[in-house]
Amino acid sequence: MSDSKTFNGVSISIWECVKKTSLKEHGTVYAPPGANKGTAKTSTIVGDVVLDFDFDPTKESVAYTIVKKPVLAPKSSIWSGIQDTINGCS
């Protein structure tokens, strides 16, 4: 599975919901605040997951790249977690 993944159909309102939901449910911090490009960091029991993100409001897409993840955190779980959050915000 790839270290990068693009999610489509992400409007500005869905993107804002994704960031708020990720913070509330997983403690994910998107930095810098309000930016369309930056880093999303989630601390887990087994270590930090760090992703670069690039949100393109005109294409309604967000691309993530895994920068750091614990060995015990499968990429598939990261991608499915993001997709679940997007689906919940749609």
Rank of each mutant, 00 (worst) to 15 (best):
M1F: 10
S2D: 15
S2V: 15
D3Q: 14
D3K: 10
K5D: 09
T6S: 14
N8S: 15
G9D: 13
G9P: 15
V10F: 04
S11T: 10
S11F: 03
I12H: 14
I12D: 15
W15Q: 09
W15V: 07
E16R: 12
E16L: 09
V18M: 14
K19W: 12
K20M: 12
S22D: 14
S22Y: 09
K24E: 15
E25I: 00
E25A: 01
E25C: 00
H26S: 14
H26A: 13
T28S: 11
T28N: 11
V29S: 11
V29G: 08
A31N: 15
A31C: 11
P32C: 11
P32D: 13
P33C: 12
P33V: 13
N36S: 14
K37P: 00
K37Q: 06
G38M: 13
T39Y: 07
A40M: 15
A40N: 12
A40Y: 13
K41F: 08
S43C: 04
S43H: 09
T44K: 08
T44F: 08
V46M: 11
V46G: 08
G47L: 04
D48P: 07
V50E: 14
V50D: 11
L51N: 01
D52M: 01
D52K: 03
D52N: 05
F55Y: 08
F55Q: 03
D56L: 11
P57K: 13
P57E: 11
P57V: 13
E60W: 04
S61C: 06
S61R: 01
S61H: 03
V62F: 00
Y64C: 03
T65A: 07
I66F: 04
V67R: 02
V67K: 05
K68H: 09
K68M: 04
K68E: 13
K69W: 01
L72S: 08
L72I: 07
L72A: 09
L72C: 06
A73E: 07
P74W: 06
K75Q: 01
K75S: 03
K75W: 01
S76E: 08
S76A: 11
S77R: 03
G81F: 00
G81L: 00
I82M: 01
I82Q: 00
Q83S: 06
D84P: 03
D84T: 07
T85R: 00
I86N: 02
I86W: 01
N87Q: 04
G88W: 02
C89V: 10
